[in-house]
Design a binder for these strands. Structure first.
Length: 428
RNA sequence: GCGCAGGUGGCAGAGUGGUCAAUUGCAUUUGACUGUAAAUCAAACGCCUUCGGGCUACGUAGGUUCAAAUCCUACCCUGCGCA
């Protein structure tokens, strides 16, 4: 039995882009789609009804965070990720590979996974090459040692462990354990890291197949299956496993990674889809995505991990990306930055204190239909929780629906037109 | 009226002779945020500046001193206690 079923409905002429659907155990995703991030099994400050009402189709949670708290065994006992958080739609979990970066090379530094190369100082590896700097993630021989940011306890996560945790969490789509590298690393390091990510990908795939076979067998043990099913405890269908492409900013490494990961095979089984991860310079992200997607097999979904901003979404979709996830809509929202068609605004700024208009006049989101900018401004100044919720609702609606509009524009043969029109307004 | 305590930048509150335009918190202003260590973080926050510095400031007015937010005198004001 296939874990997911991906179908392409229409292709974007002259480009790698496509419109399609992904069928999962928890429903169908219309792609391209924006996946909302719910790291700890909650999209911060939103309940599932609010998530659904933004139009979001999929939620992505995190292996590392849920493993530490409440523990993957606990999540399993609560009936899996979906049941635990009362999310009825499709779900995904990230492998913890990003935490190798955020708690490792990037820990305590002003460094993000995307670089503007217009700031050349950020590309000097020495600047970040202080191996004595404290890190909460240290790469070991066959896995990564994490020092919990919660209580300081040490945990060794291997590819096998990550996959085991993800099977316990029980999302519809899961990722291989990888190393998300720092954009400041030099080519030699990127090569080493890529070898590691590829080795880990194979081990992830092996472990996944092993667990899949076990779960199939369990399914055949009828009594157990029936008891569990009656209790509504566990969905026995195994998740789909996505392999992750790395390679930093380098063309050869990116292409090599795409080839290795897409051809990787264990017992006749391959990855069900692909994630494109890691670091880019903002300026050459599009080429990196293109290099990879020209090689990846057309018939499997591709997820651009941790991206992005509106211009990135257009870029990714044109270059054959089917799924995106990004913390920006919720993080920006909580921090008082709100997306509008004419660019981002800081809702706490003085100019909004007496602005009685909604964030956007013609926006159909719950926030815009019911509240003014002045009220949001007040909520943020008063540190009221509702501010973060309302801003997140709008931002998610904005980004999710932007991707839906892009999808529609492809179906209507108006992609280029829509892209130009939108970005001109957005960038003022 | 007497006694005691005290009056410091928008607010709270340090400082108690030079290193003080004055610690810190809050407020304010503006930024940042891309597989969430994040309801977080950073910067600015008396006036002027050719960025060297200059000027005005710790209730008010005097004074001591090379030097005062810091010591002295008077006055004004606030709180508490007693009449």
């Amino acid at each position: 039995m296939k874990a997911i079923n991906f179908k392409i409905e229409k292709k974007l002429e002259g480009k790698l882009g496509r419109v399609g659907t992904i069928e999962t155990a928890h429903g169908v995703i219309e792609t391209p789609a924006f996946v909302v991030v719910g790291t700890k099994g909650t999209v911060k400050s939103l309940n599932p009804e609010q998530i659904r009402d933004t139009g979001a189709q999929v939620v992505l949670a995190n292996t590392y965070h849920l493993y530490l708290q409440p523990g993957d065994e606990s999540v399993k006992k609560m009936g899996g990720l979906n049941k635990m958080m009362n999310w009825k739609g499709p779900s995904m979990t990230d492998s913890g590979g990003f935490q190798v970066f955020s708690l490792g090379a990037a820990y305590g530094k002003e460094i993000s996974k995307i670089l503007q190369i217009t700031d050349p100082s950020l590309l000097i590896p020495e600047r970040f090459d202080d191996s004595n700097a404290p890190r909460l993630a240290k790469i070991g021989q066959d896995g990564v040692s994490f020092t919990s940011h919660i209580d300081g306890s040490v945990h060794y996560i291997t590819p096998e462990k990550s996959i085991q945790i993800q099977h316990n969490l029980g999302a519809d789509m899961i990722f291989a354990f990888d190393e998300c590298t720092s954009p400041a690393e030099d080519l030699k390091y990127q090569e080493e890291a890529l070898e590691r990510t590829h080795a880990w990908a194979r081990r992830s795939l092996e472990e996944h197949l092993k667990l899949k076979v076990q779960s199939e067998k369990l399914k055949e043990t009828k009594t157990e299956f029936v008891i569990s099913a009656k209790a509504g405890v566990q969905d026995f269908s195994s998740p789909a496993l996505f392999g992750i492409i790395q390679g930093g900013r380098d063309e050869n490494l990116r292409k090599k990674s795409a080839k290795v990961i897409s051809e990787m095979e264990v017992d006749g089984e391959k990855f069900d889809g692909f994630g494109i991860g890691g670091s880019f310079a903002k300026e050459d992200m599009s080429t990196a995505v293109k290099w990879v997607n020209e090689i990846l097999p057309e018939e499997k979904p591709r997820h651009l991990l941790g991206i992005g901003e509106p211009e990135d979404l257009f870029m990714g979709i044109a270059n054959g990306i089917d799924l995106f996830d990004c913390v920006l809509p919720t993080r920006l929202g909580r921090n008082g930055t709100i997306y509008t068609k004419t660019g981002k605004i800081h809702i706490m700024n003085n100019e909004f204190r007496i602005d009685t208009k909604p964030v956007e006049d013609d926006c159909e989101c719950y926030t815009c239909k019911n509240y003014s900018r002045a009220y949001l401004c007040h909520l943020f100044h008063g540190k009221e929780m509702l501010g973060g919720t309302l801003a997140s609702i709008h931002n998610i609606y904005f980004i999710v629906n932007l991707v839906k509009k892009i999808r529609q524009s492809i179906l209507d043969d108006k992609f280029d037109e829509f892209r130009k029109e939108f970005l001109e307004k957005y960038n003022n």
